[in-house]
Computed example of a mutant assay.
Amino acid sequence: MIVDTIATVLGGVLLLRFWMQAIRVRPPASVAQFTFTLSDWLVKPLRRIVPGAGGYDWASLIGAFLVVLLATSILFIVGASAEQVLLLALGRFVKWIIYGFIALLIIEAIFSWVNPHAPLAPFVHALNDPLLRPIRKVVPPIGGLDLSVLVAVLLLQIALYLLRTVVPI
């Protein structure tokens, strides 16, 4: 449980770092300091092997996958083949990505209800915008109520369900 918790936090930070750089969002100073301090020890050496290309920080994404692979290897060390561990790690990696998006969407919904002018609200909105923009084109606001966050969470829940049917995680 401890290994899984540490791996989830570290993997989540690495995925956040990748996503911030992929969509070119400048994080608030506190978020940037936390993210980079927690992940630089892994990302900087990986950048020597896997440089960024196409505007993406591949070292952060590969680092997140290596963390989930290591955690999965430790959790399933007995009785699992390398192929099974790799498949489970890939499934858990996709699950982490989906849960990360769901968490960001829930945080945005809470900000919109409680304090839309909170200092982190524009940052969270910018992180969610690439997910919500296509949905907002299809689902217009109803009576001034934006249902795109709800639709996005439902679609991500469906993706999780489909993932569980393919890879038992």
Results as ranks from 00 to 15, higher is better:
D57S: 09
E108N: 14
S30L: 13
L61P: 08
L61Q: 04
S30F: 14
V138I: 12
I23K: 03
E83C: 12
L75C: 14
I97F: 10
G52W: 05
L131K: 08
L46M: 02
A109L: 11
F36C: 08
L61E: 01
I102L: 08
K44R: 15
T5Q: 13
I62F: 11
A118C: 04
W58A: 05
S81K: 07
R24F: 02
P28H: 10
A126W: 02
L66N: 08
D40Q: 01
L127V: 12
Y99D: 12
L42I: 05
I49D: 04
E83F: 15
F36K: 08
G55N: 02
G52T: 07
L42W: 09
L38M: 12
R47V: 07
F65I: 00
I106Y: 10
T72Y: 13
R17V: 01
F123R: 05
V13L: 13
D129A: 14
M20Q: 12
S81H: 08
Y56C: 03
S112P: 06
V13W: 11
L120W: 14
V78N: 14
E83N: 14
A109C: 06
A89L: 06
A80N: 14
V67I: 05
L69N: 05
K137N: 13
L16A: 08
V67W: 04
G79E: 12
A80E: 11
P116H: 07
L15Q: 04
A121E: 02
W58F: 07
A22N: 05
V85W: 02
D57M: 01
F36L: 12
M1W: 14
L90S: 10
I102S: 03
A7G: 03
L104C: 08
F18K: 01
V50S: 07
N115W: 14
R136T: 08
W41T: 09
